[in-house]
Design a protein around this nucleic acid. Structure first.
Lengths: 343, 343
DNA sequence: CTATCAATTGTGAACGTTCACGGGAGGTTA
DNA sequence: TAACCTCCCGTGAACGTTCACAATTGATAG
């Protein structure tokens, strides 16, 4: 009847109540080891009556496997990341793992701290959406055999697995979509040259242009300010589209970049479908709602999360190894195939 | 040189290397207790050299505080939830807590399992975005003094804190916005009568209509199929807008519902701003990008996550108590104040 | 009747840490 | 010089569980 915290019910309390040893209780609860049906029932009844709940922390300490993995994303508010997180959580859960979530905010320092923290909590492996920057710390802060899988971008530090988009091919599809619409003056705005995703997508863009015999006008190429804010992309788009000799279409390397471009177009009084066409990566849920709908290269976000988790769990349990998995993107035109008129 | 797992470096290894007792190492690392500057330096050097990493599991087992909280959302792929999650993670991190994430998929059973799992991992408290359904299990599965904070919806089971929107007031603002635009024939589509958020918002809607002396036509009220899929809302909107006597504006209770409505309008060949106006709750990142922009009642999602976490940590650390916090929504018109013509 | 075996249960130790003490060295005071 | 205090450091126990092995029981076989 005291006010204070309720006493934690332990395996030994259950043992006493059921009149057996604590080890027997352990066996009954984990269902492993030989135990008679009757005692198990007695133990379970006692456990329920006392409101016993296993303490997985203690088990993890003794048994060495915490059944927890860590997930470090660079921007949870971005739908790409939250959908990947959803995939990770679902797959992990189905395999009996829990997920500790951390957000690096695209800051390599915070990422490093998050990784250290996660390791101190003895997660068994890590899925990381790497922030832009140096990742040497992986080698110095973690045991060399610690399971890691990167998503979206590669982690330079060898040894880790990776689940990535087939960026070059996907970008070619995107560019070819614009080309098929009749465009010849096509630009591209990417997040940053430093980013693997951006640079690969730019390569694909160039390849498609070249194969179509079209010239890439360097005045029509631009970069944003990273992937968090659309401002840089807006500025680039303003520059590119305010000249007299402007493109009639652009490819953007991510939805955040596309946001900036769309804002710029509106501010310039330009209308998509009439004055310019845009295609983007990262299917944001809103792309279909725009008028006209925004064609996108959809990333299989959920599947990326699942695949990364599957790979990671394989590495943890010794049934799989670190590999680089490349998944295809998919062109989504949202059913709209209107041919736009070039300026 | 063996191939197997690297041996875990423990506090005792460091102690041996530094020539002190393990307790001294503990003191050096945690920075509490008296210890000379010199020995501390020696210990830290030894720790670094051996690559020692604290095992927080062991500490939590002994010290009884894991510094972990659990977050159970009902739909991570929904931007409302992922933004709340971002707020929770940020605030928790700043207070030294980590977050284990679980997704209930709006399924009360999964939610219950997630809660049990989280408790077995000895999280110190729980933030829950309750799925629709029964939550009695909270009382039977958890100690009565276990800290819980609900977000978005209330948890019937007493004792828990809650961070909610001032739904009635916010809905009045939304309805009044439409009224101010000159509309008199206004409908409303909500997710479900069973949902606290929906019903409260409907109340606010009715109040605003009444105060404006407008009649609420029950033919123009509809519900969606929960909050996960926009299909039900689409169907409702189809019904409401395909009659001859149709409203010129609707309020929707969430962004998912709005999606369904927008799709329906398009399929019916109706254009927002010309044939009908829509206002929604839940500022999705795309609302500003639509043409015309979709006015919304923005929820302070990030702030909700932060406030919930702050309250939870207060409950955990004994400096705060469970309370019900109501935050205001904010009308976002995205700078567009165009007066629409009623049909 | 005794040795052997399978089935079931119990005991001691360990996981890595922190808490509660206890103890020694050196300095200060009466 | 004895008594006392402060500063630093060490020892034993405990957190709740599982692992490795020992012990008990009853039955079966020789």
């Amino acid at each position: 009847m005291a006010i204070g915290k309720e006493k934690n019910v332990t395996i030994k309390d259950v043992a006493e109540k059921a009149g057996v040893s604590y080890q027997t209780v352990s066996r009954a609860i984990n269902g492993q080891g030989e135990i008679s049906v009757e005692t198990r029932k007695r133990v379970m009844a006692a456990a329920k009556e006392l409101g016993y709940r296993q303490n997985r922390l203690a088990g993890a300490l003794r048994g060495q496997n915490s059944k927890v993995i860590g997930l470090v994303v660079s921007d949870l508010a971005n739908s790409f990341h939250s959908e990947v997180a959803a995939g990770v959580e679902a797959e992990a859960d189905s395999k009996g793992y829990s997920v500790i979530l951390a957000n690096s905010n695209e800051d390599p320092l915070r990422e490093r701290q998050a990784v250290a923290n996660l390791y101190e909590r003895r997660v068994e492996g890590l899925i990381i959406a790497p922030a832009q920057g140096d990742h040497e710390y992986i080698n110095s802060d973690l045991p060399s055999d610690f399971p890691i899988v990167a998503v979206n971008r590669r982690l330079e530090a060898g040894r880790s697995g990776a689940v990535l988009l087939r960026n070059v091919e996907a970008a070619k599809v995107a560019a070819n979509h614009l080309i098929a619409l009749g465009h010849t003056k096509i630009g591209a705005i990417i997040a940053s040259q430093e980013l693997m995703t951006s640079s690969e997508r730019l390569i694909g863009f160039r390849e498609a242009m070249e194969e179509a015999g079209l010239r890439v006008n360097s005045d029509w190429l631009g970069t944003g300010s990273g992937t968090i804010h659309p401002d840089g992309a807006r500025a680039s788009a303003m520059r590119i589209f305010s000249g007299t000799d402007r493109p009639t279409a652009v490819m953007t390397s991510s939805s955040r970049i596309a946001e900036g471009v769309l804002i710029a177009l509106r501010e310039l009084g330009l209308k998509r479908g009439r004055d310019a066409d845009v295609i983007s990566f990262d299917n944001a849920p809103w792309s279909a709602l725009l008028d006209p709908p925004l064609p996108v290269i959809e990333q299989p976000t959920r599947h990326i999360g699942q695949a990364a988790t599957r790979m990671l769990v394989g590495m943890i349990e010794g049934t799989g190894i670190a590999e680089e998995l490349r998944l295809p993107g998919k062109l989504l035109t949202h059913g709209e195939q209107k041919i736009s008129i070039s300026v």
